[in-house]
Simulated scan of single mutants.
Amino acid sequence: MNIGDKVRLVHSKEEGIITRFLQNDVVEIEIEEGFRLPVLKRELAVVSSVEGQFFRGQKGSQPAEKSAESRPSGIRAEKGIFMAFIPLNDREIALHLVNNTDWDLPYALTQPSERHQRGLSGGVLKAKSSVKVQDLLIKDFDDWGTFVFNCLYYTVGFSPERAPLNKRVKFRANTFFKNKRKAPLLDKDAYLYQLDADEKIEQPVNAQTLKEKMFEKNEPEPAVPPKVERPAAVIDLHIEKLTRDFLTLNNAQMIDIQLKTFEQQLEKAIASGMDEITFIHGVGNGVLRTEIHRRLGKHKNVQFYQDAQKEKFGYGATKVKIK
């Protein structure tokens, strides 16, 4: 049984759709009247599509059930969006996106870096369908990085308004490899992660409740001074030390990153009570050194600055004495 499956109660005539799995082998189903009932799994039987077609053919008077694509307002399975990692062998694992809902999902799956994002997959993931994204090496698990999934909910015709789903995921080995089970639709063992598990469907705002909240007295919390991280005594501003994407940057972008790092580390040094800090900026064409000296000359918390460690860096480093 999977979320979205149509089931029948064994000892009664009610039919419904599985919406959630609860504890102790209890399943929540939504019957046609819109009510949701907790039922023991052993009290349910899955209604197969073949069975439905057979009995409709015998009666001859009922029209065939429409597919998920053509059903304008039959949203029954609200949740069931998964990232499924299916092992291919002892070295590789395949990433699939699974949509086990009745919604069509215009979506994008990306991986962000410091200044860019890498697109992995995008398009429209149809209701009750899946798509393979890519193969991953298990040995590179720690380097997989962060996955960002964004989607809208769409169906033809009228449907309840639904907020977009935005999910940011970074997997940890101690939990990732413990969550292995059958992937919906794919029917294969997979390390499964449900993207919409914690999503809350917004409810209409009650006017009286809102009014009461507006007049509640909120006790001010005591202010806690932020703890400032003490920087290293020597800060290397060479661009390859600051970003892995330096090969994609032009000169102006590099200078911008270097100056922002310089200012951030200088302010941290001042806030944390350091007496001095040294910045390695290199010689180059002198643009970075000149701009750093210009800003130091106007800073109210700088006592003086001078070229540092000339025997090691030449004129490629500046020591700053803080007031």
Score class of each variant (00 low, 15 high):
Leu22Val: 12
Gln23Val: 13
Leu185Gly: 05
Glu161Trp: 05
Ile17Tyr: 12
Arg42Met: 15
Val7Phe: 00
Tyr154Met: 09
Lys310Tyr: 01
Cys151His: 04
Ser129Glu: 10
Arg295Thr: 11
Phe246Ile: 07
Phe82Met: 10
Leu259Asn: 11
Asn251Tyr: 14
Thr155Leu: 07
Asp90Asn: 13
Ile75Asp: 03
Val205Gly: 00
Leu242Gly: 01
Pro72Gln: 00
Arg244Gln: 15
Glu219Cys: 05
Asp196Cys: 06
Val46Asn: 13
His238Cys: 08
Glu32Lys: 09
Lys79Phe: 13
Glu202Val: 08
Gln23His: 14
Met274Ala: 06
Gln23Ala: 14
Ala308Arg: 01
Asn99Ser: 10
Ile86Asp: 07
Thr110Val: 14
Leu137Ser: 14
Ile18Gly: 13
Ala84Tyr: 08
Asp245Arg: 11
Phe215Lys: 03
Glu78Val: 11
Gln208Gly: 05
Leu266His: 01
Phe171Ile: 01
Lys227Pro: 06
Asp142Cys: 07
Gly284Cys: 03
Ser121Gln: 15
Asn251Glu: 15
Arg244Leu: 07
His293Phe: 09
Arg115Ser: 13
Lys268Ala: 13
Asn24Val: 12
Lys321Phe: 09
Gly60Tyr: 02
Gly60Asn: 00
Phe55Ser: 06
Ala108Gln: 15
Phe313Gly: 02
Arg162Glu: 09
Glu51Lys: 08
Ile239Ser: 00
Ala64Glu: 12
Met274Leu: 06
Tyr154His: 10
Asn99His: 10
Ile201Leu: 11
Asn89Cys: 07
Cys151Glu: 03
Ile75Pro: 01
Lys178Gln: 13
Ser113Ile: 03
His11Gly: 15
Gln309Lys: 05
Asn218Gln: 14
Ala197Asp: 15
Asp189Glu: 08
Ala127Glu: 07
Gln58Phe: 09
Gly284Ala: 07
Leu137Thr: 09
His281Asn: 06
Leu97Met: 03
Thr318Ala: 00
Glu267Asp: 09
Phe177Asp: 02
Arg20Pro: 14
Thr261Tyr: 04
Val234Ile: 10
Gly123Cys: 04
Lys213Glu: 13
Ser159Lys: 08
Glu69Arg: 12
Asn166Ser: 14
Gln258Met: 07
Val224Asp: 07
Glu291Val: 14
Lys312Asp: 05
Lys298Met: 11
Ala197Arg: 09
Leu125Ala: 08
Asn251Met: 12
Phe171Ser: 02
Ala252Thr: 09
Leu97Cys: 08
Phe141Glu: 02
Asp104Phe: 08
Tyr191Lys: 00
Asp142Val: 04
Gln203Phe: 06
Thr19Cys: 15
Val131Gly: 06
Ile322Gly: 00
Lys79Pro: 01
Lys200Asn: 04
Leu105Asn: 08
Lys319Tyr: 12
Phe176Glu: 08
Asn100Asp: 10
Phe176Tyr: 10
Thr175Arg: 15
Asp104Lys: 14
Pro184Met: 04
Glu276Asn: 13
Ile138Phe: 04
Glu65Cys: 06
Gly60His: 00
Gly80His: 06
Arg162Ser: 06
Lys6Ser: 15
Ile3Gly: 05
Lys79Cys: 12
Gly122Pro: 07
Pro106Asp: 04
Phe149Met: 05
Val228Trp: 03
